[in-house]
Design a protein around this nucleic acid. Structure first.
Length: 323
RNA sequence: GCCGCUUUAGCUCAGUUGGUAGAGCAAAGGACUGAAAAUCCUUGUGUCCCUGGUUCAAUUCCUGGAGGCGGCA
């Protein structure tokens, strides 16, 4: 009894020193079953930080398969509903906000569980960003204009002059990355490749990283079922509300699967609901595949089949006990 | 029943003036330096519907057949 109290004190002390010391990552592709697991966590011990680039947006509930109210009421969630769908979220903002949440959760003597499907956010939360300048809307627009008035090839050749390493790393068709690399050069006068990426975890993190998976057929079935459930839950009403609020295709939130398909359908007017559903399922499958590819490149991942709930909970319990 | 068009990769279709064929989509794999549910890369052997004929050589031309689409009865 006495011993366990001492241990407890010691643990709290340590946590106060470094709130990042104990932190759980729970990731996996869309529809693998993350939310279900979160609802099984002990809310006295854990709080959740959302790492999903679409679920941060207000009003995008059903199509983004956001955690439902009964779950968020049961266990505390951070980084849900923090932006309007026309606002731009970024990795940098994610790290900033997630860091704050980690500290706050730690103050309550709980362990943060970062959960979601945006691998890019996880990667940079773990390692941190380079010192390259943040994206700047004006410079980005300048680069955009350059590409539109000249050509992507032209921009790519500029990159060759100013940053040969990035030029070789980036494919000639990858407008996204060519733009960013030029943007960094114009903003700082230095090549993007001169800013090194950190290669170690930040803040002395010693995280428990859990990767959830399911096989292809299972995923396919779940995605089909999920669309039907979304329809039952009122996806069309949600789309109608967005339309009423004048939602634009270009809005960051509208890039989400489950939303962008409706814009495609509305533009041509030639799709039935079931065809839109097929598109959503199909795009989700492709996305899930990209997520797996990215997550597979992570180190220290405990890959577990998402249906093995007991095993997963046990893994987490053992992790918070040890020390 | 007659006439016309059509049958090529899982799907939609190119193409070969006769030398066994290629795009898009799908599928599989991969990348990922401040937009990441984004962006991008790699991978194509398939009885070229069947049968017979002409030919050194037929998926390509010709005969016959089968399926599909359209028109006329």
């Amino acid at each position: 009894m006495v011993k366990s109290n001492i241990l407890k004190q010691k643990k709290n002390q340590k946590n106060n020193n470094n709130p990042f010391e104990k932190i759980v990552f729970l990731f996996g592709p869309t529809s693998v079953g993350k939310t279900n697991l979160l609802s099984k966590l002990d809310s006295d011990k854990f709080s959740v930080i959302n790492a999903d680039s679409i679920q941060v947006y207000k009003g995008l509930d059903i199509g983004s398969a956001k955690v439902t109210k009964d779950v968020t009421e049961k266990i505390n969630h951070y980084l849900i509903d923090i932006l309007e769908p026309q606002e731009q979220f970024t990795v940098a903002k994610f790290i900033e906000e997630a860091d704050k949440a980690v500290v706050e959760i730690n103050k309550e003597n709980k362990i943060p569980v970062i959960s979601g499907g945006t691998a890019f956010y996880f990667k940079h939360f773990l390692y941190g960003l380079s010192n390259a300048p943040a994206s700047n809307p004006q410079i980005r627009e300048h680069v955009e204009n350059l590409i539109n008035s000249k050509s992507l090839e032209y921009a790519y050749n500029i990159l060759k002059e100013v940053d040969l390493i990035s030029y070789n790393r980036i494919n000639k068709n990858d407008k996204y990355r060519i733009s960013r690399a030029l943007e960094v050069f114009y903003a700082s006068g230095k090549p993007l490749s001169s800013f090194d990426l950190p290669s170690k975890y930040r803040n002395n993190m010693d995280p428990l990283i859990i990767g959830l998976y399911r096989d292809k057929d299972e995923m396919s079935q779940r995605l089909k079922l999920r669309f039907d459930l979304m329809m039952d839950a009122g996806l069309l009403d949600e789309i109608r509300d967005l339309n009423r609020n004048d939602a634009k295709e270009e809005w960051p939130g509208m890039q989400g699967i489950g939303y962008k398909e409706f814009f495609i359908a509305m533009k041509t007017g030639e799709y039935s609901i079931s065809q839109i559903g097929d598109m959503i399922v199909h795009n989700s499958k492709k996305y899930a595949k990209r997520q797996y590819t990215f997550f597979k490149s992570f180190e220290d991942v405990n890959w577990i089949h998402a249906a093995k709930e007991k095993e997963i909970i046990e893994l987490i319990e053992n992790y918070i006990k040890k020390n």
